[in-house]
Amino acid sequence: MIELKEFTCIECPRGCRLAVRIDSGVATVSGNSCPKGVAWGAQEAVAPMRGLTTTVRIEGSSRRRLPVRASGDMPLSRLLDAMAAIDPVVVRPPVRRGDVVLADLLGLGVDLVATDDLEADAERGAE
C-alpha cells in the first residue's frame, strides 16, 4: 500500500513543505532543503515527535516561574500528560541552566531541565 502525506517541516524557520511517500513501511521524503528534513519527515509520517518547553513553579524567590525543557523529543500525543506531570514540580534557588528538575518524565527517557539560571535573592516569593 502506498500512502502520501504532506507536512510543513518544523526543524528550522524555513518551513519546507515536505511530501512523504510511504511504500510498504519505507518512507521517501521530498521537498526538503536539508538532510534534517528527511529524518523529520519520515518520523512525522509514522509517529510525530515533539519537544516540550514550559515552566515550573519557584519557591523562595521573587521570581515565580522558571523556564524548562524536555531533554529530548517525546510523542506528540503525550505532551498534555507530560504537562500534568510537571504541574506539581517546584524548584528553589539556586538553579543553573541544564540542571535536571524532573528525571525521566513519564518514563519516556527524557529529563526536564532548566533553561535559565535562578539566583537566590533577598526577597520572599509573593505568590
Binding site: 519537544g51 518547553t53 523556564p67 525543557r69
Partner: peptide, 25 residues
C-alpha cells in the same frame, strides 16, 4: 527573550535550537 520559553532560537547563529532564555544567557 526572557519570556520566550519556547525553542527555535539560534539555528542560524549557532546551529542549535535554543530556548529564548538559553539564547539570551
Amino acid at each position: 527573550l526572557k519570556q520566550c520559553v519556547h525553542d527555535g532560537f539560534g539555528v542560524a547563529r549557532y546551529g542549535l535550537k535554543l530556548t529564548g532564555p538559553e539564547y539570551a544567557l
